[in-house]
Design a protein around this nucleic acid. Structure first.
Lengths: 225, 225, 225, 225
DNA sequence: CATGAATGAGTCTTCATTCAT
DNA sequence: TATGAATGAAGACTCATTCAT
């Protein structure tokens, strides 16, 4: 199962195969429980080659985190429609986010679960990515305030907390969608928009958030690695 | 450091010392990286005694999860003021939640991070606790709908998603409050109430959620362990 | 299962209970795999008491061997009818032997299997018993020669070898009878008499050994332990 | 001591070295008392390599049993002269047997003592070998009956008992020959032929079994390992 | 470029044995 | 007399990592 045994591939390709295998194994087993043996076998290469290319388990894990963090942020960035209103942007960004996490659950587990669990080094690596996303959300909130012709007078820390809450809710929903049969990325995004934008108060009062009409088509969901 | 080394303690006491140590080590290192040696040393006993009382690393971890899950749910339950309105109950519950997680961050990491990362057995153990909390939140949402004299006609799955989002946001804010100097449990709870109850939309429109007046005093935060 | 928890028994009784338990556990598990915990539990006493009475695992095992070796030799000695012819004596001795080994298989395993497997000390202990039996058989062979009014001119070593073969055959048949459903002590003894006294040659020629008429009744087989 | 420490040997060679060491250690100490450390050291390799090649203590022991059981049966099979009379075949087979057991006493102890002492799995492994030998002996007895132009009318179980007795006597004599200075395989075999074929009765009457003239020369006894 | 061979260090776990009461 | 509490020592097994080819 996996890469087979074709020899003499260019280095870049081999490296990607190794990273694919590593993400899969790390995602399923966690950092400590993952064994270099299993990764090498799944990648279809010998263990020394993994060390030759990726240097150490530590470095290999870091490489996985970097690659997947970049992939995720880029997916979100690509999904956002720049010209839209704040909630329109958030809506499209969330859809991209949920689509991506659903597409490669192992990668998502690496980033969200395992990387944050083992040592400052790895945690810092994801924290960088997370901050980028939080910053994006923060700026969206600010933009929304401008749209409303209001200076919301929210203290900076309050805004940071709100962004944190939003991102945390998104992460949690990504897990939930991954674990719950039949929840699409669109539904997850809609639920979160309702929750975050309208709020439970409005929701209870029968004023849900409604999807803007120009938010673009459903994103294609191609199978992961 | 901590437990002291007085010999010949009754079993029940020693067991608690061991669990204290285990929660600390598991919380800081994760299940796999934690070593029974370190736990025993921190508990001030020899390794065989840990095995005699707690049986195995697996069982020890399970015992930690159970104890801390129970402690957390009981803290939240005790914090909720039963007679209040839905948002009042949520508010008091959240304050208890953030107070508790801030009080013992290691226990919180065990439950939130490590238990969910290693094997179905452990995950199921926390899932039970989480479901209890999600159920509480779900029922709060329903109560809020009744308060608004409305049947919100939200499909069951939608409600589940909302609860998931709320809990996820809370979890994320707990991490954030733990990592950010000077954020109190009260502030975290307020941020989350704003976010979850009023929603970003209302917030931007200058209609934040406001704290009910009868929600009780600040909870004392005494240090753990 | 076992002794129950009656307190304050006289020392001699307690010791026998411990030896009973030890023989059972040693017989089933072997010396190394037997645990003092299991023995103490089966004996219905606490571990320190076992040490107080029997001193160490080593000494406990030795005590088991001594007790059971003495029991076995005494059973055989008691079974032999002194006035008989050589084959009559062998016949009655063998019946006693097979009866005894069938009665307490655990004791037999201790002597025949485990004691010879773990260290010179223990092996020497059973060797003494075995030599006693071999000597008895040797003397029987010599008596048979006298009965035949012949000096068989068998060298001493040859006689020793024959006795060894006979005892070995008996031991093997004891195992076989213990493992094979429905083989009585009498049958095992008859088989061995045929084999050893008549020999395969005579047997094939239709001249089996036949039981003397004065060899006494079947021995009672009372349950072990 | 023994294997030498030349590095980088092909796997097959190393495996044999490991088995050699294992047979020696298992034979001297028994299964439980043998430590993987000692085996690895005696084999001149590190412990992980033993595990890499042989998988576990259990599997290593099984491998020893299989190898030595096969070696023993093949030695006996090779020693038997097919064209001979029944007692001639038995005579040659026994000589091969005693020669082999004398050559490698540790292997003999593994098969005869330790394998039967620890767990059904191992016992079954030797039981298979033993049955092969018992079957051979049984068939010899039947052949002897044909040679005597008689149908011995011995019940099947009786024949099984006789074979068991013969094999047991042989095993016991192998131990005895191994422990007694100066007893050759030939002498042990002769003693057993006298005992088993002629029987004590004939022996006492001055009719010993006599060696057939075509039974081949003494087998060479080269030292093991 | 690629790998079969090999290991140092560490982990979980068990057990015989003792002390303080 | 009898035991609950406690441990030093050791054993099976695994893993990240490196040579030599």
């Amino acid at each position: 199962m996996g890469a087979g045994k074709t020899k003499r591939m260019p280095r870049a390709v081999r490296e990607q195969q190794m990273l694919d295998a590593a993400v899969r194994v790390f995602g399923r087993r966690g950092y400590m429980a993952a064994s270099m043996d299993e990764i090498a076998e799944l990648a279809g290469v010998s263990k020394p080659l993994v060390y030759l290319y990726l240097n150490s388990k530590d470095d290999l894990f870091t490489a996985c985190i970097r690659r997947e963090a970049r992939a995720l942020t880029e997916a979100v960035r690509a999904g956002v429609r720049p010209g839209l209103s704040a909630d329109g942007q958030l809506w499209s960004g969330l859809r991209a986010f949920f689509t991506h996490t659903a597409r490669d659950p192992d990668a998502w587990r690496v980033l969200h679960l395992h990387a944050r669990t083992h040592g400052e080094r790895f945690a810092a690596e994801v924290a960088a990515m997370r901050e980028e996303i939080v910053a994006f959300v923060t700026q969206l909130i600010a933009a929304a305030a401008r749209d409303a012709h209001r200076d919301p007078h929210l203290p900076e820390r309050e805004v940071a907390g709100l962004a944190e809450a939003l991102v945390g809710a998104a992460e949690s929903l990504a897990d939930w969608a991954g674990a719950t049969e039949g929840v699409t990325a669109r539904q997850a995004a809609a639920t979160l928009m309702n929750f975050a934008w309208a709020g439970l108060g409005d929701l209870m009062a029968g004023r849900p958030w409604s999807e803007p009409e120009d938010a673009g088509p459903e994103l294609p969901a191609q199978a992961a690695g």
